[in-house]
Each structure stands twice: as structure tokens, then as C-alpha cells.
Nucleic acid binder design. Structure first.
Length: 478
RNA sequence: GCCCCUUUAGCUCAGUUGGUUAGAGCGACGGACUGUUAAUCCGCAGGUCUCAGGUUCAAGUCCUGAAAGGGGCGCCA
């Protein structure tokens, strides 16, 4: 028996030779043509069988979804629609698939909502196999981008005792018996008896740990799961998501923006170069979906046009103060169309304002910088005016905030002052403050929400469709 | 957490002002078919109209509540 060849490779393999392919039946037509997919690429290989040669009992078992092994000869296709096909000598059913109960009937174009409920099987569809191949390519490209630039991949902890990062509600980690936890004399729970002998949570960010590494290795990044127990019910939030957090010593805010823009463009280019077939499919899927919508709600660009547009234009960089001016004088603000009208400097920007800037005013990715200190985290570097901090948010069309970052406050006295103002317990953060005490240098970094990047590149609209097994309030299936 | 929408066959959806026995396409199943491409053709089965109350002579249709799903907002990545 010949060695198995992946379907991805068979289209360029020499013809008139014997091959073995394995995969799953997509369709079976005319008792003669099997479309087989093994997930290595979007395309199916057409297998031609001769019913005289393949027994009736086997033919009966060639159903949609069945696992199958085919041995045969690759030939130039005798029909239209494909360049090559396999004439089968041997067909073996590896795993039967009962068509009566199999929940995926591809010809019905099942809805994304339905497939979300059967996430364990949705990999079997073209859309989800394409999404997860693109997701893989982007994950790989992230490591390649940083490795090629001399960054070191730091594994920040998943379980953390640090409760002071301020990035959101946390999931507690404990081995204590919830029905009968050990108590202190005052009735509070005695975490001294917990596994770590202290109160611990799942991490909401690897940033602080990345800063520790950056202040020795200079250029580092993290790429790991992150957990937020916020009760967020949107198409852009997950309780468990993956985040990329580069942190670079000696970088200022401009360097940080350059790194963010270079990285995003590199990743988009990588996807265009390596996932052309999948992206073309996802583009068509999006076009089909938008046909249902009224003309006004449809995108002006196709998916691939949109991705290329991002590469070709510099991201618009402006300060929060400049953005407020634009918004204050904008037509929707004057006509009272904003749900939250922009009245004065200092207001937090709502997603309607971000959308206006990105989708209406500039019509391209925007980097907003120098926000008021009151609406940003304690670790961001204070500007000279004492009012704003060196923060930056990268806003993408359709996604909103895809990156949030800043130049960090490296001056010990200023950092301590901010922690006091924002009621961050200093005693728990001594390890973090040590970096400012001993050889502190300017540095900057940011966090990229990986799923938000995948959303943008694949053109999907719900973040629950770009992670294999999404976790969100009320749902931890599979 | 707040607001809005949806729920009818395995899937995607029709179902008029409340009025006989609730429909279609696809899928499944049975059959035909040796060049199909979401194959085609013929045939057939498939329903507690999400659930619990209520209004009414009469409810898939109206009202109340619940559940599940979707969307928007907030929190952020």
C-alpha cells in the first residue's frame, strides 16, 4: 500500500502514479464520484469509483461525513471542474457516518448560530476549517515576526496572585472546599490553607511579567491565554482569549506605534501570502451573507480589498485631544445622533465615537494616543502636561479596539504617586516596583487581542466563531 | 448588568384580519442513473408550531411569564 499523501499535496503530485489518500466524504454523486476532504486545504479531491470493482456493501457506506481511505491512481481529470482526480482501486471505510443522525448537512448551508451549538463538529465545514487554518497561520506568523526581530518569547504565568492589574474581573483559582472553607477568626476565608497559601486567580494580562523580562532581555513578547470574568455579552468579547503582549525596553510611544503598525501589517500580509485560497473562500462567504442585507449595510470593499487597503495606507495617528475636536464638530454630534454626545474634553470615547472616527471620518485604521490619565491604567507614563498619559489604542474598522498599549511609567516616584491616586496596593506590587528601583529604563508595550485579529482577517463578525471552543458567560461547552 | 429581536419538520424558512386536516426548498429514506460538480429524475416518511399559564366559540397567530438563540450598549483585547 502506498504511503498516505495529503490532499493539499496531491494537486501538484505527478500523475499516473499510485497514491493513498484519507479523509472524510463531503459528497457522493452518481454512485461514482466521491469528494474527499482531509482538512489540509479547502479543496476536495474527486475520487472516481467503478461500481463493478467496489462492492455494493462498501458503496452503501459512502455517506457524507464518513471517514474513508482510498488507494488509487492519480490521473488528469476526464471531466470538467477539476484538473486531477483519483481512480480508486481500493476503498476502505475507516469510520461509518450515519447520515440520518449526522447533524451537518453541508448542502443546507447550516447557519453559523446552528454550527456554534455543535462546535465539536463544525471543523468539518469549509468555513470553519478555513477559519482555523487562517488562525493557525496568524499564530505562527506572530512567532515568526518576533523571532525574526530578535524578540524572546516569555511564558507569563496563567495562575497569578497579583490582583492589582486592573484589567478586569478575575476567575479565582482554589482547591479549597467551597462548602466548608477554612476560616480566620474574623470569619474571612483563610487562604493560608489554600494550595498556594494565598488568594490566586487566572491571569488577566501577562504585561507586568513581560515588563520584568523586558527590563533584562530588552525585547520580549508573550502569547498565551487570558481570562476575564466580566459579564460581557458582545460579538467582540470572550471570557477566555489569547493575547499577544510585546514589551520593549528603550522604546517610547512612537516606537510602540511603529511596532504595532508593522506587526499588524506583517500579519495581514502573511495571511494574504499563505492563506489565499481560504481567504478567497471567506470573502465569497461574506459576499453571499451580505446579499441578504440592505445595500446601505453592505461593505464598501470585499474582504481581500479591505485587507490590502490596510497594508497600503499608513494608520492615522492622532491624539485623544485632536479626536475630541473632530468628534465635537462632527455632523452626528451636532445633530444629536450620538447616544453619548461629546460635550467636553475628558469624556471617555464610546464605541460609536470610535466607529465614527475609523469608519466614517478617516476610513482606515486609527491610532489614538495621549488619553486623559483618569481613564487609563496606573502604569502608563505621565505626559509633561500632567493631564494625559502616553497611551495608544489601535482601532480597526468593524472591530474597534484591537490593540491597547502605552509607554510605561519608568520613574519610581511618579509611578508610586499614580498607584496611590488609583488605590493600587503597593505592598503586593513590590516585585513590580523593584524594576523601577534597580536600573529602570524607558520601555513600552501593548496587548493585541488575537481573536480580534482573526475576526478582522477572516471577515467573520462574531468572536465566538474564530476560537474553536468559545467561553463566555453561561457557556463552557466542550 | 441594561435594552431590543427571534423561536413552526433534521437544516433554512413561508404561514394573510385569530377560523377546516400547518406548507415549501434542502436533507434523510426507497428507487433510477458510468462523467457528476450544492448532480439530476421519480417516490416516500417526517410536526407536542420552545415551554407554562391566560383571553376567546376558536390560538402557530393575541396577552403574561420562563427558557434558549441572536443583535446593540457598557466593561476591554
Amino acid at each position: 500500500m502506498s504511503k498516505r499523501i495529503k490532499i493539499k499535496d496531491i494537486f501538484s503530485a505527478p500523475v499516473n502514479q499510485a497514491y493513498t489518500i484519507m479523509g472524510w466524504v463531503r459528497t457522493f454523486r452518481n454512485n461514482q464520484f466521491i469528494s474527499v476532504n482531509d482538512g489540509s486545504c479547502l479543496a476536495n479531491i474527486q475520487v472516481v469509483i467503478n461500481s463493478d470493482q467496489i462492492g455494493e456493501d462498501v458503496i452503501k457506506r459512502i455517506t457524507s461525513g464518513a471517514g474513508i481511505s482510498i488507494q488509487g491512481t492519480l490521473i488528469e481529470s476526464q471531466g470538467k471542474g477539476q484538473t486531477v482526480e483519483i481512480v480508486a482501486d481500493r476503498v476502505e471505510i475507516l469510520g461509518d457516518c450515519d447520515a440520518e443522525t449526522y447533524p451537518i448537512q453541508l448542502k443546507n448551508r447550516p447557519s453559523l448560530e446552528y454550527l456554534r451549538e455543535i462546535a465539536h463538529l463544525r471543523f468539518r465545514t469549509n468555513a470553519f476549517s478555513a477559519i482555523f487554518r487562517v488562525r493557525h497561520a496568524l499564530a505562527f506568523a506572530i512567532h515568526k515576526f518576533f523571532n525574526d526581530r530578535g524578540f524572546f518569547y516569555i511564558h507569563s504565568p496563567i495562575i497569578t496572585a497579583s490582583d492589582a492589574e486592573g484589567a478586569g474581573e478575575m476567575f479565582q483559582v482554589t482547591t479549597l472546599d467551597l462548602n466548608n472553607p477554612p476560616r480566620n477568626e474574623d470569619g474571612s476565608i483563610n487562604y493560608k490553607e489554600d494550595f498556594f497559601e494565598k488568594h490566586t486567580n487566572l491571569t488577566v494580562s501577562g504585561q507586568l511579567e513581560a515588563e520584568l523580562a523586558a527590563l533584562a532581555l530588552s525585547e520580549v513578547y508573550t502569547f498565551g491565554p487570558t481570562f476575564r470574568a466580566e459579564n460581557s455579552n458582545t460579538t467582540r468579547h470572550l471570557a477566555e482569549f489569547w493575547m499577544i503582549e510585546p514589551e520593549v525596553a528603550f522604546n517610547d510611544l512612537d516606537d510602540n506605534m511603529d511596532l504595532a503598525e508593522d506587526m499588524l501589517k506583517y500579519l495581514i500580509q502573511y495571511a494574504l501570502d499563505h492563506c489565499a485560497e481560504d481567504l478567497a473562500f471567506l470573502e465569497q462567504r461574506l459576499l453571499d451573507e451580505e446579499k441578504q442585507k440592505p445595500q446601505a449595510d453592505r461593505s464598501e470593499m470585499t474582504l481581500i480589498e479591505k485587507l490590502k487597503f490596510c497594508l497600503e495606507h499608513p494608520f492615522e495617528r492622532l491624539t485623544y485631544t485632536e479626536a475630541i475636536d473632530i468628534l465635537k464638530n462632527s455632523t452626528p454630534n451636532k445633530k444629536g445622533k450620538f447616544q453619548y454626545p461629546i460635550k467636553a474634553w475628558g469624556a471617555d470615547l464610546q464605541s460609536e465615537h470610535e466607529r465614527y472616527l475609523v469608519e466614517k471620518h478617516f476610513k482606515k485604521p486609527v491610532i489614538l494616543t495621549n488619553y486623559p490619565k483618569e481613564i487609563k491604567a496606573f502604569y502608563m507614563r505621565m505626559d509633561e502636561d500632567g493631564k494625559t498619559v502616553r497611551a495608544m489604542d489601535v482601532l480597526f474598522p468593524g472591530i474597534g479596539e484591537i490593540i491597547g498599549g502605552s509607554q510605561r511609567e519608568e520613574r519610581l516616584d511618579k509611578l508610586m504617586q499614580r498607584m496611590e491616586e488609583m488605590h493600587i496596593p503597593k505592598d503586593e506590587m513590590s516585585w513590580f516596583l523593584d524594576t523601577r528601583k534597580y536600573g529602570s529604563v524607558p520601555h513600552a508595550g501593548f496587548g493585541l487581542g488575537f481573536e480580534r485579529l482573526v475576526l478582522f482577517v477572516t471577515g467573520m463578525t462574531n468572536i465566538r466563531d474564530v476560537i474553536p471552543f468559545p467561553r463566555f458567560p453561561g457557556s463552557a461547552e466542550f
